[in-house]
């Protein structure tokens, strides 16, 4: 594979009611092996996927929210969260997990992965992609 393509994964569903969120995460982790330019967008109910404090102990389901913290290890460092989607749900960035990646080129300096973007900005980002996957 010679040229790098820009891939964006759109996450629009809440985490546990359907399998979409976990499927998306698995595809991202598998796809990360191809060393493309990967970003994730969380919009609509997808913002609920990265809410902090998830505890599935009483519902007999796997809590996969810790896996989002591994994305940095997989060199997936761009997580866009749509501002309007947060606001419509009464949420702010403080309600989300603090997701980071470590920059090997800067002596493993810890950097934020999440960027809050407006709907218009996200539309523009989508426009810049080669491929957009929707979950």
């Amino acid at each position: 594979m010679s040229e790098t393509k820009k891939f964006m994964y759109l996450n629009r569903r809440p985490p546990y009611g359907t399998i979409y969120a976990w499927e998306s995460l698995e595809v991202v982790l598998i796809g990360a092996a191809f060393e493309q330019d990967v970003s994730l967008a969380f919009l609509d109910d997808g913002v609920y996927q990265i809410m902090k404090g998830q505890d599935t102990g009483e519902v007999d389901m796997k809590n996969f929210s810790p896996t989002y913290s591994a994305l940095g290890d997989y060199e997936v460092t761009k997580l866009y969260v749509e501002k309007e989607s947060l606001e419509e749900r009464g949420l702010s960035i403080d309600d989300l997990m603090h997701l980071t990646w470590e920059d090997e080129d800067e002596d493993w300096a810890e950097k934020d992965s999440i960027q809050v973007v407006t709907r218009a900005e996200l539309a523009k980002l989508m426009d810049e992609q080669d491929v957009v996957f929707s979950f």
């Binding site: 982790l29 796997k62 996969f64 896996t67 913290s69 591994a70 290890d73």
Partner: peptide
């Protein structure tokens, strides 16, 4: 235990190195 996944080999290699 921390991430709920088994890491891919290149991720493992990097994490072990660190």
């Amino acid at each position: 235990d921390e991430y709920q996944i088994a890491p891919a080999v290149r991720v493992l290699t990097k994490a072990v190195g660190k």
